[in-house]
C-alpha cells in the first residue's frame, strides 16, 4: 500500500524538480537586472542640457543619424575608468557615443576627459541627475543604444565591454541592415 502511494508521488515530484531545474538554469544565464528597464523599446525622452565642453544647449530630439550610444559617466565612478578604454576603441571604429556626465563637477569631469581621453561626440552636463532620472538610471555607468528613428533599443546597466557590445549591441545594429 505504502509503495503504491510512493509510486503515485514520483511523477509529480519529477515534474516539480524538472521545473525548478529549468528555472534555476535560466536564472543562471540571465543578466541580473534589479530594476526593469522602462525606457527600452520606447522613444528617447526629450531632455535638454548644456554641453560639458562649451556653452551650447542641446536637446535630445535634435540628435539624428545612425545608431548611437548614450553613455552615463562620472569622474567619481570607478567602473567608468574600467570601461573607458573600450569606449575609446569604439570611437576609433567610428561608433557615435554621446555622454551624459552624471552628478559630477565641471572641473572633475573635464580633468577626467583630459587624462583618460574623450570618446564622446559631446557630453550633456547633468550635475543634478535630472537626465538620469528621465532615463531611469540607477547609477553610472549605464549605456543605451538608440536607433536612427530615435528609439531606445538596448539598455546596459554596468560596464560596457567587448563581450556585451559584440553579443548584444552588434546583432541589433546588423540585424536591421
Amino acid at each position: 500500500m505504502q509503495s503504491n502511494a510512493s509510486k503515485k508521488l514520483i511523477l509529480p515530484l519529477l515534474i516539480v524538480v524538472a521545473l525548478l531545474g529549468g528555472l534555476f538554469y535560466s536564472a543562471l544565464n540571465k543578466e541580473k537586472q534589479l530594476v526593469p528597464s522602462m525606457r527600452s523599446d520606447k522613444p528617447l525622452p526629450e531632455f535638454s542640457a548644456k554641453v560639458l565642453l562649451g556653452t551650447k544647449q542641446v536637446n535630445s530630439k535634435d540628435i539624428r543619424g545612425d545608431y548611437w550610444l548614450l553613455n552615463f559617466w562620472g569622474s567619481w565612478c570607478p567602473t567608468c575608468y574600467v570601461e573607458h578604454p573600450f569606449l575609446m576603441k569604439l570611437k576609433q571604429q567610428g561608433v557615435t557615443i554621446i555622454g551624459v556626465n552624471y552628478k559630477d563637477t565641471e572641473q572633475d569631469a573635464k580633468r577626467f576627459l583630459e587624462t583618460q581621453g574623450n570618446p564622446y561626440k559631446f557630453s550633456f552636463f547633468d550635475p543634478k541627475g535630472y537626465i538620469a532620472i528621465d532615463m531611469g538610471i540607477t547609477a553610472a555607468p549605464e549605456t543605451f543604444l538608440i536607433s536612427p528613428e530615435g528609439k531606445v533599443i538596448f539598455h546596459r546597466i554596468g560596464e560596457m565591454n567587448e563581450r556585451v557590445y559584440n553579443s548584444a549591441i552588434l546583432p541589433l545594429i546588423n540585424g536591421s541592415n
Binding site: 534589479l34 530594476v35 526593469p36 522602462m38 525606457r39 532620472i133 528621465d134 531611469g136
Partner: peptide, 8 residues
C-alpha cells in the same frame, strides 16, 4: 513609475 516601473 514611468521611469523605474512598479519596483519603485
Amino acid at each position: 513609475k514611468q521611469r523605474y516601473g512598479d519596483f519603485i
